[in-house]
Design a protein around this nucleic acid. Structure first.
Length: 792
DNA sequence: TTCTCCCCCCTTTTT
DNA sequence: GGGGGGAGAA
């Protein structure tokens, strides 16, 4: 039954081992010396420091194959952990391809979370859960937090429940249980953090539910408190492989270290320069500390890059060199030069999207002396998901096929969540959160008051909400229409529950029946809003997605772990995704739009994390650039809509860090030449841009002022006054001196974020300003401008 | 109870 | 430009 004693797996294992032993290991010949060393050093701890594009997945998969080939382990004795489902899938197919056969027998190749679920289902009772526990999504999690906060005397305006969720997540990421919250952090969330954390955990237990963080945390707890269980797995997992080690958080680190403690056959692969999940609790320290944790570890560095051209590599290296804390690697390649990294500035975000759209169209035919690219070869990587909409809008207008990866996800849509809540409730009636979600969806006349009655009854008798509702119906605690509707709902739930696993109908039919009989489908059919048809479509797709699973439970678990619904209907498409989602991927042509200070690097990251945040942003820039194989196009806009308001933007500081010798500035006519006003616009701008410009009130004045803004000056300075060949130091000096000398003490200045103020002192390239609202702050000179020059 | 309007705050990034 | 929450009306 369990994969532990899975005979199929065993069969597959011995089969493949024999098959591989019959002929030599061709996969080894394809490796370079460093990769080969990483693959062949099978026993003992190994740390593979693998820069971007150095073939680490290849090495990792070859290592798995080699383990099997050498008869070191059977497929189900290898624990192989990744961070994303995508990476897990990829590795599975690559191992299969290398072995020359489909590989079904690797049950322990998966994400930390997927593997943890598997472990936890077996040992749930050790942490007070039943093995059919539900996994809450962040939506449920937040609703639970809200309830807890509401029950406390806390102003949820000042202390948003979301913040509590972050605090608790942070603790879980560091494997801190409620009883172990450090004294220094007892003040978190208005001093209620630790108590609410304990309450939250208690509530989860009542609900027989876990959140994402719990999956790992519970496993660690089990390992720490039940030596026999731990020992069993230590013996079972003879070899451990970990991908993206730089992204492990403390909980994951403990999880791994406990499992590897016996034989220490652990191979971690990572790149400190690609650590981009610090906000999720990732500890780069884990990778830096590896040799201490595992004395005698073999460290292998993969530095030959097989992905990108030298220009792209040089640009990436130059940017990442700005970071202080790194192990340091030198990537090299023997590829031909190819295109320089292309840099282009735009008037605004719409213009940027328009240009990229047009560029994509011409690139399909081949343009600017480059080869032709298929849309599948192209990707647009953004910092924040809201940037994707501009591209979607544009691509829809011009009919350019695109695919959004990791955007608003299928399973996060309202109708899908509602439907899933029905399914959840039918398969596990104790799922109170699911009940709350659907009790009045569709409208059943069960408003706040009725729901409170149900809650009260349930709490008083210590039963689930469904049972509470049943009692309310029996005792007629809820009168009128609502009461009648509740009776129907309760009966329906019971009836559907009896149909689960029934031989008379498939789980797809059951799902359909639930949606129809509950009135949920009808609710959307009667809905006249424009999105209703789409929602019905999605529901159909949901039922269709059920086909791939044996039963409803299996499906629900899949969904909670794999939030994306991969449906790709052929045809070449350009991919649009966040930089985070792009990690581990590569594309011949990459567009990196929105390189503007505040957006990228993100203001928030810098505000909250300071230099640490900036360095993580810089690593993100590095990840972005290194996704490109042949062409990398970076762009920024002078103006952008932020929360629906036009705001002038300054080019990202990372742009200054690009090496000039490897960058080509693409300058469309009319942008920098000063002729962007009426004349230049008529010639080059598209009708809709003109229309928008015309509709902007006093746009003429605005435009004139933008010319004087520091960002605009910098833009101009960059492309015209100083040729790209000028050495970098002197360029920076020029800018800074320029900016500083522009101010005198006492002068009234303006700062994007802090507003108006008076210059109080000048120090290098920093200016001390007494802001009227924000107090005295030292700011970088180029972020302020004379008060008269304010761009609006 | 529900609907609608208005105001506020907001947005990193993901398993 | 958009969603959530509160207030007030049908």
């Amino acid at each position: 039954m369990s994969s532990f004693d899975d005979m199929d797996a065993f069969e597959a294992a011995s089969l493949s081992a024999r098959a591989m032993q019959a002929r030599p290991a061709p996969y080894l010949d394809e490796l370079n010396p460093a990769q080969r060393q990483a693959v062949e050093t099978l026993d003992g701890p190994v740390l593979m420091l693998a820069g971007a594009g150095t073939g680490k997945t290849k090495a990792l998969t070859a290592r798995i194959v080699h383990l099997l080939n050498q008869g070191k382990a059977r497929p189900n004795e290898i624990l192989s952990v990744t961070f994303t489902n995508k990476a897990a899938r990829e590795m599975k197919t690559r191992v299969g391809r290398m072995l020359g056969q489909a590989i079904e027998g690797m049950p322990w190749l998966g994400t930390f979370h997927a593997i943890s679920v598997k472990l936890l289902r077996r040992h749930a009772e050790l942490v007070g859960l039943k093995s059919n526990f539900t996994i809450l999504d962040s939506d449920d999690q937040l609703r639970l937090m809200k309830q807890l906060v509401a029950a406390t005397n806390i102003d949820d305006k000042r202390w948003p429940p979301r913040q509590l969720a972050n605090v608790i997540d942070g603790w879980k990421n560091r494997a801190i249980t409620p009883d172990r919250v450090p004294a220094a952090e007892a003040g978190a969330y208005n001093h209620e953090g630790p108590r609410l954390y304990a309450e939250y955990q208690a509530r989860l237990k009542e609900l027989n539910a876990v959140d994402f963080g719990d999956l790992l945390l519970h496993c660690v707890t089990i390992f720490q408190t039940h030596e026999d269980v731990l020992a069993q797995y230590q013996r079972w997992f003879r070899y451990i492989l970990v991908d993206e080690y730089q992204d492990t958080n403390v909980a994951q680190y403990l999880w791994l270290r406990l499992l590897a403690a016996g034989h220490r056959n652990i191979c971690c692969v990572g790149d400190d320069d690609q650590s981009i999940y610090g906000w999720r609790g990732a500890e780069v320290g884990n990778i830096l500390r590896f040799e201490k944790d595992f004395p005698g570890a073999h460290v292998v560095r993969l530095e030959q890059n097989y992905r990108s051209t030298p220009h792209i590599l040089a640009a990436a290296s130059s940017v990442i060199a700005g970071n202080e804390s790194r192990l340091g690697k030198t990537l090299w390649t023997d590829a031909d030069d190819g295109e320089k990294v292309r840099l282009i500035g735009h008037w605004d975000g719409d213009e940027e999207a328009r240009w990229i759209g047009e560029e994509l169209e011409s690139m399909q035919k081949g343009t600017r002396g480059m080869r032709a690219f298929s849309l599948d070869d192209c990707a647009i990587l953004v910092r924040a998901s809201h940037q994707m909409r501009a591209f979607e809008d544009r691509f829809l207008t011009i009919g350019l096929p695109y695919r959004v990866i990791g955007g608003p996800r299928f399973y996060e849509r309202m109708e899908i969540r509602d439907a899933m809540a029905y399914f959840r409730l039918v398969t596990s009636p104790e799922d109170d959160l699911a009940f709350e979600r659907i009790v009045n969806v569709p409208k059943r006349g069960l408003g706040d008051k009725a729901q409170q009655t149900i809650q009260r009854i349930a709490r008083d008798r210590g039963v689930t909400l469904v049972d509470g509702a049943r009692i309310a119906v029996a005792e007629e605690a809820i009168k009128g229409k609502g009461g009648a509707a509740l009776r129907v709902l309760v009966d329906d739930l019971a009836r559907w529950g009896r149909l689960v696993g029934s031989a008379d109908l498939t789980h797809m039919e059951l799902a359909e029946q639930i949606l129809d009989e509950s009135g949920y489908t009808a609710m959307w059919q009667n809905d006249k809003t424009p999105e209703a048809p789409g929602r019905l479509e999605n529901l159909k797709e949901l039922v269709k997605a059920l086909e791939g699973f044996e039963n409803l439970q299996g499906f629900l678990e899949h969904v909670s772990l794999v939030m994306d619904n991969e449906t790709d209907d052929g045809g070449a498409k350009v991919s649009v995704m966040t930089l985070h989602a792009a990690k581990g991927l590569e594309f011949p042509a990459v567009f990196l739009p929105g390189w503007e200070d505040g957006l990228f690097p993100s203001q928030r990251s810098m505000d909250e994390q300071g230099l640490k945040g900036l360095e993580e942003e810089r690593r993100l820039a590095y990840v972005g650039i290194t996704r490109a194989e042949e062409v990398c196009t970076i762009s920024f806009a002078g103006n952008r809509r932020v929360f629906g308001q036009w705001q002038s933007q300054m080019p990202s500081r990372f742009i200054d860090e690009l090496p000039e010798a490897h960058v080509e500035v693409l300058t469309p006519p009319g942008l920098y030449g000063g002729g962007y006003g009426a004349a230049g616009m008529a010639a080059s701008a598209s009708p809709e841009i003109m229309a928008r410009q015309m509709s902007d009130i006093d746009d003429r004045a605005q435009r004139a002022d933008v010319y004087n803004s520091p960002g605009w000056r910098r833009l101009q300075a960059r492309s015209t006054e100083r040729p790209m060949s000028q050495p970098r130091e002197s360029r920076n000096q020029v800018i800074d001196l320029e900016a500083v000398s522009a101010y005198v003490i006492g002068e009234r200045v303006f700062h994007q974020k802090f507003g108006y103020g008076a210059v109080a002192g000048i120090e290098g390239d920093k200016v001390e300003v007494d802001f009227e609202k924000a107090g005295t702050k030292k700011v970088v000179a180029r972020f302020i401008c004379a008060a008269d020059d304010v761009p609006f």
